[in-house]
Write a protein that binds this DNA or RNA. Sequence first.
DNA 1: TTTTTCATCGAAAACGTTTTCGAAAAGCAG
DNA 2: CTGCTTTTCGAAAACGTTTTCGATGAAAAA
Lengths: 342, 342
Amino acid sequence: MEKIDLKKLAKELNLSIATVSKALRDSWEIKAETKQRVRDLADKLNYQPNPYASSMRKRKSQTIAVVIPEIANNFFSVVLDGIQVIAEKKGYHVLTYLTHESYTNEIATIKHLQSGRVDGVLMSLCSETADYQHLIRLKETGMPIVFFDRIAEIPDCPTVTTDDYESGYGATEHLLRRHCKTIAYLSLSQHTSINRKRQQGYMDALKNSPAKPAKNLAVHCGDENGSIMLAIKKLLSKKNRPDGIFASAEKLAIATYHVCNDLKLKIPGDLKVISFSNLRTASLLNPSLSTVTQPAFEIGKEACELLFRKIEKKSNNYMSEHLVLKSSLIARGSTGLDQKLK
Amino acid sequence: MEKIDLKKLAKELNLSIATVSKALRDSWEIKAETKQRVRDLADKLNYQPNPYASSMRKRKSQTIAVVIPEIANNFFSVVLDGIQVIAEKKGYHVLTYLTHESYTNEIATIKHLQSGRVDGVLMSLCSETADYQHLIRLKETGMPIVFFDRIAEIPDCPTVTTDDYESGYGATEHLLRRHCKTIAYLSLSQHTSINRKRQQGYMDALKNSPAKPAKNLAVHCGDENGSIMLAIKKLLSKKNRPDGIFASAEKLAIATYHVCNDLKLKIPGDLKVISFSNLRTASLLNPSLSTVTQPAFEIGKEACELLFRKIEKKSNNYMSEHLVLKSSLIARGSTGLDQKLK
DNA sequence: TTTTTCATCGAAAACGTTTTCGAAAAGCAG
DNA sequence: CTGCTTTTCGAAAACGTTTTCGATGAAAAA
């Protein structure tokens, strides 16, 4: 089964390579009968054009890159699903790169992306990233970039986010309404854009509360399981431990559940918990987990569509678009009324 | 920021393109001093070789494809993680394609892969696939293919699987030991390789049981949530409904939990449940879910390493490798003793 | 000195497309 | 029949690399 290319088709048909090429892309220069002959043989021999030769000549790769911190994560995997759906519809191919929350990985990946391997980049920053120089350089090469969720504040870069400030405010307010007196805010890193907004929402909700809780407790736990468990265990072992936790990432809530099991703390009796999460099993947990759920699939789709708009006509790259989708707060057992007495 | 290529470097350095190219790949033909000059300028101008030009000339794309049914799935996303880790280590790029459990999608994707876009393919079949002609054709073009989990029985194709028969046997045995009298087996599709083996294990375990349950109940639920819920609800509404369920996919167990909530059935009191699953929150569910857990990350890594062995030396493609990893059965609350009386 | 070897580099072909431009043939009007 | 347009096709350049092979000059051997 030898590789079949334009030259072979041309020889077989007694045509030139140019004619075969044009026939296959349905050019008006070629008469209908010839087109049919070419297509028939191409189908018969199962001709598949070499995408790299085509990319080189057209200077378009029909490929986009998705750069994300991790893939084994309910949020990112669903976002990727949304991206794939749109990309496939457009006939584009998707290269994924994982930074594993490492800044140096992110830099290396971004640097490589200058090579022309892709026509555009969809990206969510890693938790360590505090400097955007590498991204600015990439952007200056003319590469279309769309950020989602963990965005970089770069001029003229479209973004797709959720209403993080409002969600943070709402989640905190929810805990306050459930009579929490001391509410801790848990995050992976203080560097990310989403953390800044969610934490600000948390702080403002506390400030505006009539109860006026004394202080605000923001704990940045790092992104590895070990440090997370340690930080939470330390937090919940203090004499005046919080009675409410607002986790800004799913794994923080999971860790909180485990720590509570260890420390024999009852949720929601001793501690109420609400978390940003896309867990499909949130309602089946013990107790069911109150969540702020982001529309991950839509985020992926919207970000991808925004990217294609950038790719297809660079004209409007002076007006940048910032799409903000709404998360939904779903109250469940983990912030329910005290069940200790049951 | 204009694109910088070999020609620009060559002109700047008063060298030929050939020399610059060879210097950058550290050829022995070029003297050390020249190499240094070239590298310095390349670094300074942030030169990134065009991968498509390189791919064309070398007839190697440094890219592999991963074809999977879905990505928003704990198992497949972790497998992908393992794949990415190995691929990145090898300097390879990863294209992912989702079939969304559709046979026609799978065919279209596989057909496109004949184009030379990738050097190898990692694949898990979609649930509808019962015919392997498209895969055989791809293989006959010389494309290295490694199957994992849902494999195709094709001669000389390496596979990475788990001990599905033994796990199916073990899970069923576990339910029997927990005094289940009527055990149902739930699957998405009867076509997949894993289903055949797991179901065989289930049936053999029933046959070898001293209690000798009357019949075996295998229910193929389809892969969409609607049909799954319907099938399970129907199963659990029968007069002589089963008192044990062995789910061969995570989403089947989730659906079972929801149906039990609807029908006011208690797990494990009225119904014991064990499931193939990679849920990280299995232990936090209500009740905690007994699982057969596959080593997803290792599956991804091993499959990818197998693929690279195929890519790097085609010599040993007569001896095919079939790797079988062990799943682990973790007994939890959902198959615990009757708690109805508590 | 002449011949051989070695070290270093460049010219050019090749990878498989796409596209520009010109050529040939055919149709048409005058 | 002549001049013009239209239709249909092919030659060749280009995309940015890699690699083969030959050229050059200098050093080593004769």
